[in-house]
Amino acid sequence: MGKILDQYVSRKVLGRWRKAAQSAPFTALHLLRRQRDEARQFRLHLERLIQVADGRLTRPLIGSTSFPKPLGTDWAWRPDLWRGPLAKHGHASLSRKTSMDKQVTLFHDCDLGEIAIRQTRNTADKDLAPFSLALEIFEFTGSFLSLSIELPAEATFGLTRQHLIRASAQIECERPTGMFARLNIQHGPNTEQVLRELSYSDSSMSVDFDLAHLHLNERRVEKIWLDLIINDPRMNRIVLRDLTLCRHHRADL
């Protein structure tokens, strides 16, 4: 009975506001002013409800860590920027170093600063990450533009030269441009680096960083970060729809 009554009340309220909206051009001003103030109060609560509902009902769900992983994976991670909403969604006219959060920072050396960066919500059926990161670059006269992603401390625990670290991304560009991924591993005073080119044969791409040939002191690994380096970024819009990393052991031969 309560549900039927609620539906009846909702229909009556909706009908009242529909009639008020249709009559607004002819309503007396003193009544119109009262309706406007009341409507604003309703709108505040309705917009809050819609915002929360969109966040909870839109897929992929906020906080999702689901993505394909190779056999033998012992650590996997999607950075927070692709999992949940940031306090500040975007920046324009970027300085040479701009941090989106504690994990993701953009670097460049262009004096013009005609670069914008923004977090957006993913809604496509194929998306696994709840959010994307969109870069819009206009004139660019610098020599480099890179996105640095600092991996959490858990990525260093138990790391050995028998591991491969896989970086996977879904990237869309208005025009094709060269892009490289560089893994950096700090151990003591030294830093080892592995560079891989990202292929644009598909919007989904993965690269494996083999640690076997690095002069790596496994007992002193302190920090790992990934650099995504974009060549000739000018006059382009680049959207990173997803970015994930995982660690797995090399197959026994």
Rank of each mutant, 00 (worst) to 15 (best):
193 Q>R: 15
210 D>Y: 02
37 D>P: 02
241 R>Y: 07
162 Q>S: 14
229 I>P: 07
112 L>Y: 13
182 R>P: 01
45 H>S: 15
145 L>P: 04
180 F>R: 12
216 L>T: 02
64 S>T: 07
9 V>N: 06
147 L>P: 01
169 A>V: 05
226 L>M: 12
252 D>N: 14
28 A>R: 14
130 P>T: 08
15 G>H: 05
192 E>C: 11
241 R>C: 07
163 H>D: 14
218 E>V: 13
4 I>H: 15
192 E>T: 03
1 M>R: 06
53 A>Y: 15
152 P>A: 11
1 M>W: 05
232 D>F: 07
98 T>L: 03
161 R>G: 05
244 T>P: 01
134 A>C: 05
147 L>I: 10
230 I>S: 00
21 A>T: 09
14 L>V: 07
241 R>L: 06
178 G>C: 09
52 V>T: 13
21 A>N: 13
15 G>S: 11
171 I>R: 08
32 L>F: 14
82 W>N: 01
111 D>E: 13
228 L>Q: 06
109 D>M: 07
155 A>P: 03
194 V>A: 02
49 L>W: 14
42 F>W: 15
173 C>N: 06
72 G>F: 10
253 L>E: 13
82 W>K: 04
162 Q>T: 08
30 H>Y: 12
102 K>W: 07
100 M>A: 08
121 R>K: 15
88 K>E: 09
99 S>W: 07
187 H>V: 08
200 Y>V: 07
87 A>I: 04
168 S>W: 04
85 P>H: 13
230 I>E: 01
83 R>P: 00
181 A>K: 00
123 T>F: 14
155 A>E: 04
157 F>P: 00
